[in-house]
Design a protein around this nucleic acid. Structure first.
Lengths: 180, 180
DNA sequence: TGGGTCATGTAACCTGTTACATGATTAG
DNA sequence: CTAATCATGTAACAGGTTACATGACCCA
């Protein structure tokens, strides 16, 4: 249940509407989590039922009225509980559509597999560029024992994962092309 | 929509019941895709409605009766279509609960983050061992231009990804522990 | 002889995706 | 002046997870 907790985490930064959260999410968490807007609205509803957040309606004249959410004491407690829980089983959910397709590519000509890999490579290259650009835009970071730069570790992970994937793709294409 | 296609792929190997597929899935695709049994049953139902598979009831006396599925011509066509389609956008769905938790770990003591990483490390080590054991059990492979060993590329990917993750975890723990 | 596992599934719920709606503002 | 984008969401459907059901067989 990471999405709810991600939203709770964002709400500890500031009160936000669904729309705000959706933007915030894009800028921060989207490198390791995809969520679309409507999902965010629904999760906010649910979390209000549970009591992790409260909302208040804000009237606007230039734009549609909005509903601004804030985290409650219970929400904060839940966030901390989740962060402390050691359980790592559910961290290893694997679902890799690229490998699924590649796995069965013996049913079609080799060229399709190569094209698949090349298309995905382009996506990796772009995603990697976006992340490192974003990191560069933040500049140097000071870390202390009291404030480790966790966001930096996460972006490092992502960048290196793309590097790994690109390398593997290149090798795999070369291997495919060298087959006689 | 990779699960349906994965099941279609497995059904090109042999006719199977939901239960059989669930086992087959475990042995072959589970390294890069998690699917639970009930999901498989439901997808089979859906695919029968669409006409990608047909089933027949097989009476058994020692065990509950079963329903055996086979792939249809339409199912085969769909599998090939899916394999040929170049679309790589939907291959890059990211959802990483580890990074989500790590990202917000500034809210709790450093030890919790370290414990989280260590737990996940253990899972990676085990998963890696299981995969390489499975590969070892298969022995040497002959590849030709007509028959590339795609399954091998997929397992290579998985092994290397675990190596990458383990390395990153070790570095990150070291980094966390060195903070003053 | 009682608790696990095999073999087969169904039902209910939770999460993710796609499509749509509305009125203002900005870009070409 | 027309099309995109901003700013706000709702509704419906598809896919994933958890819990349960049933009867045989196998191990201690």
């Amino acid at each position: 249940m990471s999405l709810k907790h991600g939203l709770l985490g964002l709400l500890t930064i500031r009160k936000s509407s669904g729309y705000d959260l959706s933007k915030l999410f894009q800028e921060s968490l989207s490198f390791f989590w995809v969520a679309n807007q409507s999902q965010i609205y629904r999760e906010l509803d649910k979390m209000e039922e549970i009591g992790w957040v409260v909302s208040s309606k804000v009237e606007q004249d230039a734009r549609p009225n909005k509903r601004v959410y804030g985290i409650t004491k219970e929400g904060n407690q839940e966030l901390i509980r989740w962060l402390k829980e050691g359980n790592a089983e559910d961290l290893s959910v694997v679902r890799n559509p690229l490998l699924m397709k590649l796995f069965f590519s013996g049913k079609v000509e080799k060229d399709h597999a190569v094209a698949l890999l090349k298309n995905y490579r382009a996506i990796c290259v772009q995603a990697r560029a976006e992340i490192s650009e974003q990191v560069a835009g933040i500049g140097d970071v000071e870390e202390t024992a009291a404030k480790p730069a966790y966001w930096l570790y996460a972006t490092e992970y992502s960048i290196r994962q793309y590097d790994f994937q690109i390398k593997w793709i290149d090798e795999t294409i070369a291997r495919l092309e060298s087959l006689k």
